[in-house]
Every structure is written in C-alpha cells, then in structure tokens.
Simulated scan of single mutants.
Amino acid sequence: MNKTDLVNAIAAQGLSKADSKKALDAVLDAISGALKEGDKVAILGFGTFSINERPAREGINPATKEKITIAAKKVVKFKAGAELAAGVN
C-alpha cells in the first residue's frame, strides 16, 4: 500500500479525497516534526515511533578489505502496539 492507496482508504471512510490527503499529510508532518525534535510518538493500539542513536563503528570495505569508519547516525525505530501485533497474527 502506498500513499495514494492510503488516501483512498481514508476517503472510503467518509471524507473527500482532498480532505483525506490533508489529514494524512498533517499526521505525517506531526510525527516527523516530533521525531526531529527528539520526542517519542506513541499511538495507543498502533505503535510507538522513536529515535535511536547508532554509535560510530568500524567496518570493512568488501572490495578492498580496507578498514573504514562508519559514522554515527540517528535512525527511526517503530515498535508495533499489542493490538496491531495481535491483528496481524
């Protein structure tokens, strides 16, 4: 399912496609903004979005077998809620 399919699924619940797109964009912007500020976003019954920091580490270039340093970075983590996990299984 892509963004267009998701907008169509929301529109099937009674909103217009334009309003569905605006609602979806607003939700995604709010989640993105909170994560950029370092906050955790918990949606009861769905799941939790959070930021994890990966430390710098050493790796090996597979082509040259040379050791390289992989920079530290932040990654988005999602943990499914109990209701979502139960619904999938």
Rank of each mutant, 00 (worst) to 15 (best):
residue 80 A to L: 09
residue 44 L to R: 13
residue 14 G to N: 03
residue 51 I to V: 14
residue 21 K to M: 07
residue 11 A to P: 08
residue 18 A to D: 14
residue 2 N to P: 04
residue 62 P to Y: 01
residue 29 D to Q: 13
residue 46 F to D: 03
residue 60 I to R: 14
residue 50 S to E: 10
residue 47 G to C: 05
residue 3 K to G: 08
residue 59 G to I: 00
residue 67 K to Y: 02
residue 30 A to I: 08
residue 81 G to N: 03
residue 67 K to L: 02
residue 22 K to H: 08
residue 89 N to S: 14
residue 3 K to V: 01
residue 85 A to I: 09
residue 10 I to H: 10
residue 19 D to I: 09
residue 86 A to P: 05
residue 68 I to E: 02
residue 81 G to F: 06
residue 56 A to P: 08
residue 89 N to F: 02
residue 21 K to D: 12
residue 5 D to A: 13
residue 2 N to L: 11
residue 55 P to K: 14
residue 13 Q to H: 10
residue 12 A to W: 05
residue 33 G to E: 12
residue 16 S to T: 15
residue 37 E to C: 05
residue 47 G to V: 07
residue 39 D to Y: 12
residue 46 F to C: 01
residue 84 L to T: 06
residue 50 S to G: 03
residue 78 F to P: 09
residue 68 I to Y: 01
residue 22 K to I: 11
residue 82 A to I: 07
residue 35 L to C: 06
residue 3 K to T: 08
residue 55 P to H: 06
residue 86 A to H: 03
residue 33 G to L: 11
residue 84 L to P: 04
residue 37 E to K: 15
residue 37 E to N: 15
residue 25 D to L: 05
residue 64 T to R: 01
residue 10 I to S: 09
residue 40 K to D: 15
residue 3 K to D: 06
residue 73 K to H: 14
residue 29 D to Y: 09
residue 1 M to Y: 11
residue 29 D to R: 13
residue 88 V to H: 04
residue 66 E to D: 12
residue 40 K to I: 11
residue 62 P to K: 00
residue 7 V to Y: 01
residue 2 N to M: 13
residue 32 S to L: 09
residue 39 D to I: 09
residue 70 I to P: 04
residue 85 A to E: 15
residue 15 L to K: 06
residue 37 E to Q: 15
residue 76 V to E: 12
residue 26 A to N: 06
residue 35 L to E: 08
residue 69 T to E: 10
residue 28 L to C: 05
residue 35 L to M: 07
residue 51 I to R: 03
residue 50 S to L: 03
residue 13 Q to Y: 10
residue 40 K to R: 14
residue 32 S to D: 09
residue 78 F to S: 10
residue 51 I to A: 09
residue 12 A to P: 02
residue 72 A to Q: 02
residue 48 T to C: 01
residue 1 M to Q: 12
residue 80 A to F: 05
residue 38 G to D: 06
residue 85 A to R: 15
residue 81 G to L: 02
residue 43 I to N: 00
residue 32 S to H: 08
residue 68 I to V: 13
residue 10 I to R: 10
residue 78 F to V: 07
residue 24 L to C: 05
residue 46 F to S: 01
residue 79 K to C: 12
residue 46 F to T: 05
residue 40 K to F: 03
residue 24 L to F: 04
residue 87 G to T: 07
residue 16 S to Y: 00
residue 39 D to S: 12
residue 5 D to Q: 13
residue 71 A to D: 13
residue 1 M to K: 13
residue 57 R to W: 02
residue 22 K to M: 12
residue 19 D to G: 12
residue 29 D to E: 13
residue 84 L to Q: 10
residue 74 K to G: 02
residue 9 A to E: 10
residue 14 G to R: 06
residue 89 N to P: 00
residue 26 A to E: 10
residue 40 K to M: 10
residue 79 K to G: 08
residue 26 A to Q: 05
residue 27 V to M: 08
residue 77 K to T: 12
residue 26 A to F: 03
residue 88 V to P: 00
residue 8 N to Y: 09
residue 68 I to P: 02
residue 32 S to G: 11
residue 53 E to Q: 14
